[in-house]
Amino acid sequence: MSESAVPAPHPPPPVPVGQLHLAVPPEHASTAEARSYRKQRLAAALRLFGRMGFEDGVSGHITVRDPEFTDCCWVNPFGVPFGHVTAGDLLLVDQEGRVREGGRHVNQAAFAVHSQVQDARPDVVAVVHSHTTYGRAFAALGEPLEPLTQEACAFYEDHALLDGWTGVGVDAGDGARIAAALGPHKAVILRSHGLLTVGDSVDAAAWWFLQLERACEIQLAAKAAGKPVPVEHRNAVAAREQLGSDLAAWHNYQPLYARITRDEPDLLS
């Protein structure tokens, strides 16, 4: 029998679907366990943002609602580099901006904006805002994001534009205007300021921020190169339905979380 006539070997039988591992957002046995989980995810997101250059002096903050004291949130301390933050460094802050746990000052802009958003949106667990290069450049245009790519379609008819500068944003009035502009959406573009995203987990809110920053970069580049063709309405809606849920964002974020915690395990302490 010639070599060409030798039967090809058969691959192993398929693994039953029920035996394949799929990560899902965990359920927690206690509020203490849930709190520790949320703080670790927050510290990891800050480290990632530091690595990606999403830091500008003392600007930028991510918050996560406490699972027990739901009118309080955990936030990065004022003046500590994103790349140095650990779960143990985080501050618990109440609706009045008072530090309930932790030994550092809180960023007043973080308190003013995030507390108002979380108060207006009980469904929101985490809020992300930072002063990024492409986010700020795009925000200076005072226009919404267009559905130019399938990733940008996740924000189609699910983001808002605050078409007016609110100032530095250190009082409740500024935060209330941002919360009102955000409405029921996952993101808001703050003219002359930057981007803000929300989610039902730190992972989702952080992923939306990363995707919105990239979508801003791509739209700026596409329009600089020519006249981009948007995805038509029906297809943009279909893409949003597939890609635009917080669960989809959570899944997309997991490789980033795995990488940063393996590279920088001290952040969990």
Rank of each mutant, 00 (worst) to 15 (best):
A8E: 11
H10S: 14
P13D: 02
P13Y: 00
V15N: 00
G18T: 04
Q19C: 07
L20I: 09
H21R: 15
L22A: 06
A29D: 10
A29M: 02
T31Q: 01
E33T: 12
K39T: 11
A43P: 04
A45L: 03
M52K: 14
M52G: 08
G53A: 03
E55N: 07
V64G: 05
D66T: 02
D66L: 06
D71E: 09
V75N: 07
V75F: 02
G79R: 11
P81K: 08
P81M: 06
F82A: 07
H84R: 15
H84A: 04
H84N: 12
V93R: 09
G97P: 10
V99H: 14
G103H: 14
H105M: 12
H105C: 13
V106L: 13
N107R: 11
Q108I: 07
Q108V: 12
A110R: 09
A120N: 06
R121Y: 01
R121A: 11
V124N: 08
V127R: 08
R136H: 04
A137M: 03
F138H: 10
A139Y: 09
A139N: 02
G142H: 12
G142N: 10
E143Q: 10
E143C: 02
P147E: 05
P147R: 04
L148E: 00
C153I: 08
A154C: 05
E157W: 01
D158M: 07
D158R: 12
A160P: 11
L161G: 00
D163Q: 06
D163E: 13
G164W: 13
T166W: 09
D171R: 08
D171W: 07
D174F: 02
G175L: 05
L182F: 05
G183Q: 11
H185N: 15
H185D: 04
I189P: 02
L190S: 01
R191I: 01
S192V: 00
L196Q: 04
L196I: 07
A204F: 08
A205L: 05
A206T: 08
W207P: 11
F209A: 02
L212T: 04
E213R: 15
E217Q: 15
I218F: 12
L220C: 14
A221C: 12
A222T: 11
A224T: 14
P228F: 07
V229G: 08
V229D: 13
P230A: 00
P230L: 04
V231L: 11
R234C: 01
G244V: 10
A248P: 09
W250K: 02
H251N: 09
Y253F: 15
Q254A: 10
P255Q: 15
P255V: 06
A258F: 03
R259S: 10
E264R: 15
D266V: 10
L268F: 06
S269M: 07
S269G: 10
